[in-house]
């Protein structure tokens, strides 16, 4: 690499740090300050992604990707999932449950911040920071380096952590488990239940073969020329807004149903096809 590209890399890295670092801080603040739980979860996701970008720019691509897959993809997604199941509109109440809780929180978090900055600053003060790239070069790559450390020097810690996580998962399963005292409902049993309950089991009848009007407030006719009330939406029925069926239609269906022909129907209707006096009056 020549000098200019080195400079460019340095400038690029600084730029990435300030943009992503700033966004990460904004995300962290947003998490604390947003009253809606889902918004807070989103802000945490934003912080995680920005941290991941910084890791990648610091030559630790594996850590960066795993950060997104594990924290953003799995942990925060699980959070969102639970929030959606528990309550969509759940938001924090700002009432203190313990007196002085808020001030204590501020004091302790400032203390923790000071402690962290002091410790890390102290640790970094005397030494020049090494680079991940140099460490990677010893093992022939970022992934290889991590693998050789995890599976040699930190093998015990790695295995113990995995045992801890499996124990936690098992514990959660045991806590969430409950014994079933009745048989598990199957698709078949649910379907039987539905038919037994007496409500209309399927889709409500639409205007059928004998419907003569396509307005929603006009009922369909059954083959024996009786109007089918279920074909009118229940809201319209409750408001008595269902229309009556013209008598001419009923006559026509009756003629056809009793073996009459279309010609007979036409002959019968040659007078006034829609005589308003002959309509079936009243509500369904």
């Amino acid at each position: 690499m020549n000098l200019t590209s080195l400079m460019a890399a340095g400038v690029g890295e600084t730029l990435v740090f300030w943009i992503c670092g700033g966004l990460a801080v904004v995300g962290a603040l947003g998490m604390v300050l947003s009253p809606k739980a889902v918004h807070a979860a989103l802000f945490v996701g934003m912080t995680m992604i920005n941290l991941a970008v910084i890791y990648v720019s610091l030559e630790a691509p594996f850590l960066g990707m795993v950060q997104i897959i594990v924290y953003t993809g799995a942990v925060m997604m699980l959070f969102l999932f639970v929030m959606m199941v528990v309550g969509v509109d759940s938001s924090d109440s700002l009432i203190e449950t313990i007196r002085g809780q808020r001030w204590m929180a501020v004091i302790f978090s400032l203390g923790l911040g000071a402690l962290l900055i002091g410790l890390i600053g102290n640790g970094l003060a005397g030494s020049t920071p090494g680079s991940v790239a140099a460490a990677d070069a010893v093992h022939g790559g970022n992934v290889e380096g991590l693998a050789s450390l995890i599976f040699t020097r930190y093998f015990l810690a790695f295995e113990v952590t995995s045992a801890l996580l499996i124990t936690a998962a098992l514990g959660a399963m045991i806590l969430a488990h409950r014994d079933r005292h009745t048989a598990r409902p199957t698709q078949e049993s649910l379907s039987r239940e539905r038919f037994r309950s007496g409500v209309h089991p399927g889709v409500l009848p639409a205007s059928g073969s004998y419907a003569r009007h396509n307005a929603v407030d006009t009922p369909a006719l059954l083959p024996d020329a009786t109007p089918e009330p279920l074909s009118v939406p229940s809201a319209l029925r409750a408001r008595h807004q269902a229309k009556a069926v013209p008598m001419a239609d009923i006559d026509e269906v009756t003629t056809l149903a009793t073996g009459g022909t279309v010609a007979q129907v036409d002959a019968a209707q040659s007078g006034d096809p829609h005589d308003p006096d002959r309509d079936t009056g009243g509500d369904l």
Binding site: L42, I49, F62, I68, I69, G73, M84, V143
Partner: peptide
Amino acid sequence: FPVALLYVLAIASIGIYGVVLAGWSSG
């Protein structure tokens, strides 16, 4: 880069947010 396939997985897991958030935010 050496972890390109992990990048594909990471991007896919962020992409799921689009679907989940659409479902939540529609109210």
